[in-house]
Structures are given as C-alpha cells and as structure tokens.
Amino acid sequence: MEHIHTLSIQNTYDADFIKRVEEASGQQVSKCYQCGNCSASCNYTYVYDYPVNQIMRLIQLGQREIVLKSRSIWLCASCQACTTRCPCNIEVSHVMESLRIMSREEKMVSLKDIQLFYDEFLRSVKTFGRVFETGLLPVFNMKAKRPFGDMDLAPLVLKKGKLHLLPSRIKGRKEVAGIFERLEAFHKKHEA
C-alpha cells in the first residue's frame, strides 16, 4: 500500500489519468459522487487496501500510481455487484478491469501471483486450445513457489476419476494461437 500524503496530494497528481481511465473503460468516473454503494456491495472490501469507492475517488484526484499499484484492483472478482448498484450507472467493475490492464501495461502489478496464474492459464489456452486444469496447477505452484498449494484436493479429485493426465488438444490449435498472434500484431501496429 502506497502512503498517501494528504497535505501534498498535488505532488502526485497526474492530470491525464482520469481521462485515460475514462477512455479505456468507456465509463464516466467523474460522475461518481462517493455515495459508497459500490463498497457496501463489495464482498472483497475486507482484503482491499482501498475500498472500491476510494479507488474511484483516487482516479478523480489523478493518483495514478496509488491506484495502479493497489492490491484492490487485482483482488476484484468482477462480481458486478458494484455495477448493478451504482446510482450513477457507472460500470464500476469495468473500471476495475481497465485498471488491471493499465497496471500491466505500466508494470505496476502489485499481486504478481494472481497475474502469473492468469498468464499461465492463457498460455495453456494458446498451447492446447483449451485449459488443462491438471497441468495448470503444478506449473503455477512451481512458478509461484508454493509447491503444496491445493495438494490436499488431489486425492479427492483422483477418487472421483476427475484427474486428467493429458490435455485435450483441439484440432484448431493453430487457429487459436493465430488469435493471440494477430492481437499482438494489431497492438504493435497501433502503437507505431
């Protein structure tokens, strides 16, 4: 959690930030009047460093680094409770999603293990065309340095005949990998 200097908040003010968040998410964050409905609806407030209404306020205050380095944006489960209940019709959950993507782009991801899990998941999709649950877990455990994570579940899953030792590779693997490649090429073209 970044320390906020409340008396000199202008030192960390990034005038462009709110505009960039609004463009990326298509949501008018400036409309938020801090009613707190989103945070009251959020089951994850207890693990957040800043409740989601404060994230919204910090965006308005141009506090780019604090927001993009927050744990909250990576612990958000996209459950849509906030979006459903915001009286200003802001899709708050969508804003959180855009912030996650921006924090990746600006290399400010706070919870690297969650990002790692998502990346390994996508690698599995790119390789096989589908997610290989049984293969994903040990690879993630190894890379996240938690060798025994969820190992208590293995005997249960095995007993029910649900442990697959081989991934199901689809025929259109190249087509799926092609989607990843074209996406990369698309972004390169637009950055240039």
């Binding site: 993507i101 998502y118 990346d119 998941f121 996508l122 025929k171 996406l183």
Partner: peptide
C-alpha cells in the same frame, strides 16, 4: 465441433479483444 476455451477471467484481465476473439 472443435470448440476452444473462451479465455475466462484471465482473458478479460489481459485484453477484452482477446476474450471476444476467443
């Protein structure tokens, strides 16, 4: 036939276009 993974939350959190294309 030959369906592929939709990318789930990891794709949403990486790039909405990835999720849509998958």
């Amino acid at each position: 036939p030959d369906w592929n993974c939709c990318g789930s939350s990891p794709a949403h959190s990486a790039d909405p276009l990835l999720s849509s294309a998958l």
